[in-house]
Amino acid sequence: MDLDRFRPYLTWIALAVALLVPAFASGSLYLLTTASIALVFMIYSEAWNFLAASGQGSLGHAAFFGLGAYASALTASRFGLPPVLTVLFGGLFAAGIGLLIGLTCVRLKEWFLAMVTFGFAIIIQTLMVSQFAGISGGWDGTAAPALVPSSVPFAPYVQYYLILAVLIGVLLAFRALLRGRIGLAFAAIRENEVEARASGIDPVRYRLFAFGLSACVAGIAGALEIHQFGYVTPEVFGTDISFWPIIYSISGGLGTLAGPLVGTVAVTVLWEGLRGIGLTYARFVIVGLLLILTVIFLPNGLVSLPGRIRAWRRRREGEGD
């Protein structure tokens, strides 16, 4: 059983599965909804992971997720624009604020950065419910028109494919960037900032770029989610929304494109499966344990699992000889 033979086809297999999900889901709107939400979180986790690839770990990505959601919902409902367009505006708006926040963050390291990003999510939530309550609807929230109006035939399916298309676009863009000069620069900064600087890479510029783009994609994800829900409340800035992309990315594989995808699928299946057998708090305990065990024993996430198993088997066989 050699997995390597399948490796070149994995992308295509994954794509085929993603395209066929609605077929499996026929008759189960629950499966389709869960899959659509999972796709949104894949986009969101990819955004977080892109930032992590530049060596920056954010604990407050809900700030951008929520800003994109609000910007899109408000422009769509106030100006009557189609959500398909305002989603992009949500992303741009989140990117703008993201760049401003990035300016204060790019010189900070590790847990200073973690605290500051965490803080920005709380500050933005507070602004939304106090000073900007007149625009945002405060704690009552505001309505968000449906991404695909229910008058469109097969609306939930159209919505699924639309989100899938955005995900594929995001993946292609990130792949191109990470394989090019930017990816090399990120790796250099991540490994050794002093050396990177010596070889003429300006870490601040690259970090800022990562911040802006990550915020933009997170904003798009947020906008996609709330147009699916039809309503946005300040809870989108919550800590749990900041933590999920971390859980998905880490369990899947930090710094890899496939990581957030694998992580989201694995954790979502685990999560829904544990619900199926009636567990409540134990689900969180298991997800927490999974995260801890992954960080300790599988720092490169589930995507590195096949390789690790192969290495382990080779070692066993070696011992047997």
Binding site: I246, I247, I250, L254, G288, L289, V295
Partner: peptide, 16 residues
């Protein structure tokens, strides 16, 4: 970053 991620896992574990 691993320490930060580990802490998040511990938060979920301990709270629940």
């Amino acid at each position: 970053l691993n320490e930060i991620f580990l802490s998040i896992g511990l938060i979920y574990l301990f709270q629940n």
